[in-house]
């Protein structure tokens, strides 16, 4: 129902990590992703990526995940790591408008793509994005740790489907877990955001 970027599948991610010399388990991916070593024959590390409309030059290890780059290299800590293995969606960002798990994407694989994080949604004058505003009005977050991911999933959903039914919104948000169980309030927020436009 919703677009999937064929270049950013979990299979490609794991293949990429293996190719870069790290074992394909979630725990080792975590540390490999933060690695400073330069494996023999490695690719260019100083790369340019487009984040929130700005081209950023950043030193990226071959096996580094986008979540690590965003959080630990660019200081964009709004992108959260809940599981670091593609289960929870707390790290959801938009890659070419498509909600994607940043913990399961190699930064090198998105050099030519547009990356949007929760920090890039507010307007220049500080106005909240309609999804953010709606989430405030509906008090959608509880603990808030999954919220940036929920926000980005909702933004991606509404770009693909500006007027979803509640059931479509439920399906579209299903890749994001909320342990507080605030799903009903998030869906209220999505539906209100669709109204705000």
């Amino acid at each position: 129902m919703y677009p999937v970027n064929p270049k950013l599948t979990r299979r490609r991610f794991i293949k990429g990590v293996i190719a870069s010399g790290a074992a394909a388990t979630s725990t080792s991916i975590w540390y490999a992703a933060n690695g400073a070593e330069r494996p023999p024959g490695s690719v260019e590390r100083l790369i340019r990526i487009n984040v929130n409309g700005q081209v950023r030059t950043v030193d990226v290890a071959p096996q580094e995940t986008l979540a690590s780059t965003l959080r630990y290299k660019l200081g964009l800590t709004g992108t959260k790591l809940g599981c670091n293995r593609g289960e929870c969606g707390a790290c959801t960002v938009l890659v070419d408008d498509i909600p994607s798990y940043a913990c399961s994407i190699l930064t090198h694989s998105v050099k030519a793509m547009r990356i949007e994080t929760v920090e890039g949604l507010e307007s220049a004058n500080g106005d909240l994005h309609p999804v953010q505003q709606a989430f405030v009005e509906e008090l959608s977050p509880q603990c808030g740790y999954c919220t940036p991911g929920q926000v980005m999933a909702a933004v991606g959903l509404l770009r693909a489907n500006p007027n979803p039914t509640r059931e479509e919104a439920r399906q579209g948000m299903a890749g994001n877990i909320c342990r507080c169980g605030s799903y009903d309030s998030y869906l209220n927020g999505v539906m209100r955001a669709a109204e705000i436009g």
């Binding site: 959080r71 964009l76 800590t77 709004g78 992108t79 959260k80 790591l81 994080t117 929760v118 920090e119 949604l121 507010e122 909240l128 999804v131 953010q132 989430f135 405030v136 008090l139 959608s140 977050p141 808030g144 740790y145 919220t147 940036p148 926000v151």
Partner: peptide, 21 residues
């Protein structure tokens, strides 16, 4: 009465900091 708790904007913008941030 409902109100906007002061941490909510930080939660939807990602500005609020958790320990690992």
């Amino acid at each position: 009465k409902d109100f906007v708790p002061p941490d909510v904007p930080g939660k939807v913008t990602g500005r609020i900091k958790y320990a690992e941030d």
